[in-house]
Structure formats: structure tokens, C-alpha cells
Amino acid sequence: MELPGALSPPWWLLLLPLLALLLWATRRSSWEPRECPADLTGKTVIVTGANSGIGKCVAMDLARRNARTILACRSRERGQAAVEEIRAATGNPAVVLRLLDTGSLASVRAFASAVLREESRLDVLVNNAGITGLPFAITSEGLEQTFAINYLGPFLLTNLLLDLLKASAPARVVNVSSFRHSVGTVDTGFLTGQRRPGRYDAAYSSTKLMNVLFTAELARRLQGTGVTANALSPGVVSTGIMRHFSWTARALFGLLRPFMKSAEQGAASTIFCAVSEEAAGISGKYFDSSCRLALPSAAARDAALARKLWEASERLTGLTERE
């Protein structure tokens, strides 16, 4: 779910009808997953944050395509419930749960180690897990929690699994970003909490900008390997991601919910990047919520900034000391 953070009383009362109309107009995607014939028999996929919302819908679709589908979830209880639901709905027994907390680098390393030990291939990695509305906090590993969950954890996970992705090529990395990346800022001090983004929910927007920059630099480094990397916006989607917000924000969300995309509709752009023939061979790009190539913000296209962020991320995750 992505809800513009700038709207707060009294302005939202005046803008509510217009926003509702805009949300309704963008509910439909130009690409329909159910019309895509892609079959993933013999292939393995990982979807992070797959126990609910967009992630569960993505995992459901990939399981319907006969993929071995690994749900990477923080909660064993909610993750196992999602596994059982997806198995029952798709008839695919090769749907499994692996515990992963992207906010913990130790958890990311343990998850990646298990995947490398137990899986012979990896064809699609969907970095979907994310959070918004959390208070500022530093983790036991010295990282700011929102930036760890939304950006540094996925950065480390992807890098740890790159060799397996390359060995399985053609393979795809899909990073779920947001249209809100356009109001984000990049300061490597944000990653450790030395500095804080200043605006309302600015941490979320900044992590989503980092996701796009990471995607661009990853794609540059993957040239010639057969592995592609793309970022996308799911649009404004009705999910449970607002649970950490104030009652005012949740009330606004509730009023707009009927006009938003469902989780299934919001999953379309992720599924498009993961399986569509149209996206095959495309790398380093950003897709909008209608599954169309779009130009990200000027900051997201700054190659020097992408390299600087990558290098800082390597240091913070320990990747400069080769795993």
C-alpha cells in the first residue's frame, strides 16, 4: 500500500473527492496476470513478505504457474497459514515457508545460507517486504529499523543470492518500490540513524528511492549475466500496511479504501516484472502501477548517487568482506 503522506486535516477534507476519483481511475492495470500464459514448472521463486497483501497475491500467482514457491516471512504462524491457503487454492504442494526478518542482517544471512544449502536454483527473487509508519528506532545491529527492513535487508539478501541467480539464468530480481520514491531523499546517514528524514513518513519515501537506485546499480553490475533487475510501483493499494499510523491517517485510509486497488490488482506490476514475456531481457528500469515503463525521479536516475549508496550499503552489511 502506498498512501500520499502529505494529506492531513483540514486539507484532506477538501481534496478527498478528487483523490477518490484519481484512485478509482487508476485501479485497472493495462496488463492482466490471468491472461499471461507463463508457466514456471521446474523453476524456483522467493517472495518476501508473502503472508499477506501484495506479497501473498504474488506468491499465489507464481504458485498457480507451478513454481516452487518459497514464502519468506517474519511470522511462522501467519506464514504457515498463507502456505496452506496457497496450496489449497492452487493445488501446488511445492509451496514452502522459510523464516526471514529483513530488518535483521543476521536473519537475512541465515535465510540465504539455508536457501544456498537446500535449493539447486533460483529463478525469481521478489523483494516485496516493507513497512511504513514505524517510529524512529535503532536495531541491535546499529541500523535504523525502517531503512533496515525496506532497503538494507533486501540489499544484503539479493547480493547473497546472486551467484545462485546467475547459475539459474535467465533469472529476475524484482524490487517493489513506490511512486513515493519521487519525494524521497538519499543520505547514507539515514541508514544508521545519524540523521533523520524530516517530513511526515519521509523514511518510507526515502527507502523507496533507495530501492530504485539499488535496482539501477544492480542491473549495471549484472550486465551480461542473464539476470535482470527491475523496480516497480504497485500503486495505491488497500492492504494492512497502515496499521502503525495514527487514527487520523487510518480514518482517511478507511474513507478512501473503496476507491483503491485491491491487493490482487496491486500485485499486477510485480507479477508483470517477474514472469511476463514483455519484461524479459529488460533490466535497470522502473515500471508504474499500470505495468508500463516510466521515468523515475531525477534523483533515482543519478548514477553517481547509486554507486555511493551501494558502497555505503556494502560497508554496513559487511559485503566488502566477501561472504
Rank of each mutant, 00 (worst) to 15 (best):
A67M: 13
R221F: 08
R27M: 06
L162H: 03
P197C: 02
E35T: 08
V236W: 02
P197S: 01
G153S: 06
R180Q: 01
A94V: 12
A203N: 05
P9K: 04
R199A: 12
S283Y: 07
Y200M: 10
T215I: 05
K261I: 14
G240W: 00
A306S: 12
W11G: 11
I131L: 00
T41P: 07
C57V: 12
Q223S: 09
L15V: 11
L23M: 02
A279S: 13
A114Q: 13
V126F: 09
R220L: 10
A312R: 11
E118T: 14
T185L: 14
K285D: 04
A89R: 05
K56F: 04
G266Y: 11
I131S: 06
E77D: 09
C291Q: 04
N51F: 11
L116I: 06
S113R: 15
L21I: 10
E278A: 15
A106Y: 04
A294S: 14
L293Y: 02
R65W: 05
R257G: 07
D123S: 01
V83S: 01
P37C: 07
L14H: 12
M242L: 13
E2D: 09
V183D: 09
N159P: 04
E85C: 08
G193S: 00
W247R: 06
C73S: 13
T69E: 01
K43L: 12
E32Q: 10
A306Q: 00
A106T: 15
A110S: 11
A25R: 15
P4K: 13
L161H: 08
L143C: 07
L23D: 00
N127F: 02
L71D: 04
L218G: 14
K308Q: 08
T102Q: 10
R250M: 12
S120M: 15
R180D: 10
L15C: 00
V186M: 06
T215D: 11
A216I: 12
G91W: 13
E84F: 13
F155G: 00
E323K: 15
C36D: 15
G266H: 00
L18P: 03
S178C: 00
S182K: 14
A169Y: 05
A167R: 08
E84P: 02
L156T: 06
L157R: 08
K308I: 07
G53V: 07
E2T: 15
L222A: 01
T44A: 09
R121D: 03
P33I: 05
A63L: 07
E144C: 11
A67K: 05
T132I: 12
I86V: 11
L97H: 11
T270F: 04
S262K: 06
